[in-house]
Nucleic acid binder design. Structure first.
Lengths: 220, 220
DNA sequence: AAATCTCGTGAATCAGCATTCACTCGTTGC
DNA sequence: GCAACGAGTGAATGCTGATTCACGAGATTT
């Protein structure tokens, strides 16, 4: 009979794979995509460089998994936030605020994953992630338009614009550093809602009712 | 008497420097920052790789000059567009539309210069450019607020948000490719004005009066 | 316990690219 | 015309970082 992996070995392998992924992610979060080097990941995971290739066929595959995992977490959080809201506009506001709050919580990681280009292959993958995030927003926006809460507009462009505004306003190099995260999230959410056509006063009301950043961040 | 440069030689040197800068810029415009390699620039400029180092101490310095030149052109165009408008809100709209139209005209170049990170040193430089663009917008926004045309808001965040929305909505990977540039510019300008607090109807009016993209692009 | 088999290792290899430098050639000053 | 000088050259150098591989260690099977 051929060699077969013991239960124990399977677990150890799976654990190590997670260790590697975790090491890679923590490096991304601390120093950006550019700092993800096989040697560095290996060092942080406390294994040899070659070992990484027992788990991932290439560096790109490793990075891809890091991105995919983060993408999945964000999508779930956004979707849940929207579903929990009472109406279409509230759902939209919750969606935006959730994305903003979570991104702000892990600025560097979010920026690296959403916007920091490294390699054409990786960029293609990241594109899927962005598309998925955008699709979630588009869905909320479309619903709000259909219900007459927003003026008619090109949903694709609107969603992209909102994402761009959030990234740049909260994470980008121009964003005011640190200070009060909650205020920043609220300011950008307000900005985004107005951009989509909600009048100022109404938008302020919606923002005030949004779940607090502290809540949406849980489970990161 | 020591060697002295002839009038003729001086011109030739200056021309060649421009040739190199032009080659670098055209590569950025076609294939992004990542494609700017000394060998490639030299090939396009039809000179030897080593020659580039007679004109620029390092690749970073070369890239820096490409960025600075582009930044300067954009700032001048934006400023002029705003100054030519009849009122504060029109100026704001013209500023935004101009930025949008010009960016869209040279999508790749604009994206590369505004958003494509390569090297920490370069990033720092790009930051200045973004700050300058943002400052121009901030100035227009502040004026409009002071005149009571916009609700009070954090001008820094607002300007950053507008830039992010424009970049992402028009140039980013999610932006609908090609099609009608004029429409896209108008849609994003409308989006930005609403984001800043102009109500939909009024914003539409302002956008309709903006100079056409065809005009603002001249002189690129 | 012997025979296989996979895992982990890390030094060596390979590739891409910026940068250098010894050299050639056209200019300049006499 | 000729000696000095700086511009132009491009092959060689050097560095950085991903990927490979031959080997020793630990697991699994008989």
């Amino acid at each position: 009979m051929p060699y077969r992996r013991t239960e124990n070995v399977v677990r150890r392998l799976a654990e190590r794979e997670q260790t590697i992924l975790g090491a890679a992610q923590s490096i991304v979060g601390e120093r950006g995509m550019g700092a993800v080097q096989i040697a560095a990941v290996a060092r942080r995971a406390d294994i040899a460089a070659g070992t990484i290739y027992r788990y991932f066929p290439s560096k790109n595959d490793l990075v891809a998994e890091v991105i995919a995992a983060a993408a999945c977490r964000e999508l779930v959080a956004m979707h849940a936030a929207g579903d929990g809201a009472p109406g279409p506009l509230s759902a939209l506001a919750a969606c935006v605020a959730t994305f903003a709050a979570r991104a702000l919580h892990d600025r560097r990681l979010a920026w690296a994953i959403m916007a920091e280009p490294i390699d054409p292959d990786i960029d293609a993958l990241r594109l899927n992630f962005r598309r998925a995030i955008a699709a979630e927003l588009e869905m909320r926006i479309s619903t709000a338009i259909a219900d007459g809460h927003l003026p008619a507009q090109d949903v694709r462009v609107a969603a992209a614009g909102v994402i761009g505004a959030l990234l740049e306003g909260l994470l980008g190099p121009l964003a005011p550093q640190a200070e009060n995260a909650r205020e920043a999230v609220q300011a950008m959410t307000l900005f985004a809602l107005r951009a989509l056509g909600v009048v100022d006063a109404r938008a302020r009301g919606l923002v005030a009712q949004c779940p607090l950043p502290a809540n949406v961040v849980s489970g990161l």
